[in-house]
């Protein structure tokens, strides 16, 4: 198994007491497998993704990605882990307005040690694969919503992450663009052979994935199979 998740629990302390959000989640995913997670707002989907990506710490539990335990890491090592091993696509593109599309894609590599020429070529290659080869020198404000999200996908893949997480990446897009982005994520996942986990509200989009799970009140269970 490449990704192992064991008994992940997360509780938030509120004024009225403890609020359980994740209630003992177990998950195993082999390398090059993809998964869609569905669920109502507030069911814990985003919290789970944030915990998997090292953006948030669980109250208890264990995560292993390629044998690495992000929960046992120091803050410095965890930052390195997030930079090298995890790619994140959010509902909003979060492209920096002062940088061109190509510079936005290159941003994660500024903290890495990859040779500059190599990483610039990789960024251009990724932008070509997401259909933005003619938009590299454009500013984010000059792109459509779908194009911005495609740029965000390219940025998430620049460090060749083992784990690609997407938290409602099509939430701000129309139906046609949403399906295009989801198919693009799946195509790039197959080419890169990474682990892809996508949170979505759309049943139609979830059906594009070979495995679909449902999150309900912090409990993750198999939902349906598109096959």
């Amino acid at each position: 198994m490449t990704l192992q998740v064991r008994q992940i629990r997360k509780e938030f302390i509120t004024r009225s007491g403890s609020l359980p959000v994740l209630c003992g989640i177990d998950l195993d995913l082999d390398s090059d497998k993809s998964l869609a997670i569905m669920g109502q707002s507030g069911s814990g989907k985003s919290t789970f993704l944030h915990v998997l990506g090292g953006l948030d710490k669980p109250s208890s539990g264990k995560i292993l990605l390629d044998g690495l335990d992000p929960l046992a890491m120091s803050e410095t090592d965890l930052a390195h882990y997030r930079n090298q091993k995890v790619g994140f696509v959010f509902q909003d593109h979060h492209l920096l307005p002062q940088c061109t599309v190509l510079e936005n894609v290159l941003l994660p590599s500024l903290l890495g040690a990859m040779p500059k020429n190599e990483v610039i070529q990789l960024a251009k290659d990724l932008l070509a694969r997401v259909g933005l080869e003619n938009r590299m020198d454009h500013m984010p404000s000059e792109l459509s919503g779908g194009e911005r999200q495609r740029a965000a996908v390219a940025r998430a893949l620049i460090m060749r992450p083992r784990l690609l997480l997407a938290d409602e990446p099509t939430g701000n897009l129309d139906k046609r663009n949403a399906e295009n982005i989801m198919r693009l994520l799946l195509k790039l996942h197959e080419e890169e052979k990474n682990i892809l986990i996508v949170v979505t509200h759309s049943v139609d989009l979830a059906k594009l994935f070979p495995r679909v799970m449902a999150m309900d009140d912090g409990i993750l269970a198999e939902a349906l199979s598109s096959n």
Binding site: L102, E103, L106, L107, L110, L111, K116, I120
Partner: peptide, 9 residues
């Protein structure tokens, strides 16, 4: 084309 941390700042 080059893009460094200094240029970004």
């Amino acid at each position: 084309m080059s893009f460094s941390l200094e240029q970004f700042v």
